[in-house]
Amino acid sequence: MRTDAPSVPAEGVAQATPNRRKAPPRRRSPALRKAFPYLLVAPAVIYLLAITLYPGIFAIYQSLFVVRFVNWTWTGLGNYQAILQDREFWAALGNTAIIGGISLTLQTCIALALAYFAYRDPFIRGWRILYLMPMLFMPSAVAFLWKLAFNDGRVISDMLIGLGLVEANVDWLGNVWLARLTLIVADVWQWTPFLFIIFVAALQGQDQEIEEAARLDGASWPSIFWNISLPMMRPVIVVAVTLRGIDITTMFTNVFVMTQGSPGGATETMSYFIYRQGFRMFNFGYASAASVLMLIMTIIIAQTVVKRAFHSGKK
């Protein structure tokens, strides 16, 4: 691998082309032959290092300072000490887990059920396009859609009143769990299709004969689903849920548009916490320390869960 990793991504791009062109077409020396695959991956790797490793190092460095605009004051591990005692930080971590966990569970169950009912249906193509639609809107637009439906336009309240479930307008931002619920609804609505599409493909790809045999033996559909389809889909479910889980834990847009963390920080996710510390309160050192902690968690999860998920899903 090349060692002159540039700190500016633009250079990575510029280097990409010469690398590829330089390789002589025939009769390469053994050394070049050996280096060839590395030269092919180098531009991509350098680009990614510039955008991950460099910011990582920068964040670690900055996290050791109290940053007030242009004044950087050395504080050592002071930011970390403060953050580990910061109730808002732990609350953000908890909120991310709660909102993400509930949301992910719901969309996985809904997507599984829908996929199981849909995959043999003659109109599967139609269902797929229909169910896909929420996913194809920009997340910021979807956040506004639900902000209007829940809060500003009072449509959901109106419908609940119509159904006789509540008596007056619901103040969705006035209650911790209701505010979280609005974020969960928005996420489930938009991203259940992601899992649905993948699960349908997995079900369609599996061996139909085993299922057919079970059906002829008189097994009921729930038992076929539970004992045959689900175990066969396991590797796919693991990969899909892992990918979705990663995205959910980085949830930002919906929080930014819909709740801004209210009420009382109950819907503040990790991403929003970092954003608020950095770009609202200009506590960049503090935000960087939070970033580093989140990065460590990401690396641990990547090395354990994701590596395994993609190894099992590879075949």
Partner: peptide, 16 residues
């Protein structure tokens, strides 16, 4: 790198 939360690198990228 797909798993890196945008927020993690947001501050450094902004400064960069």
């Amino acid at each position: 790198t797909r798993m890196m939360a945008p927020a993690i690198v947001a501050v450094p990228i902004f400064f960069l």
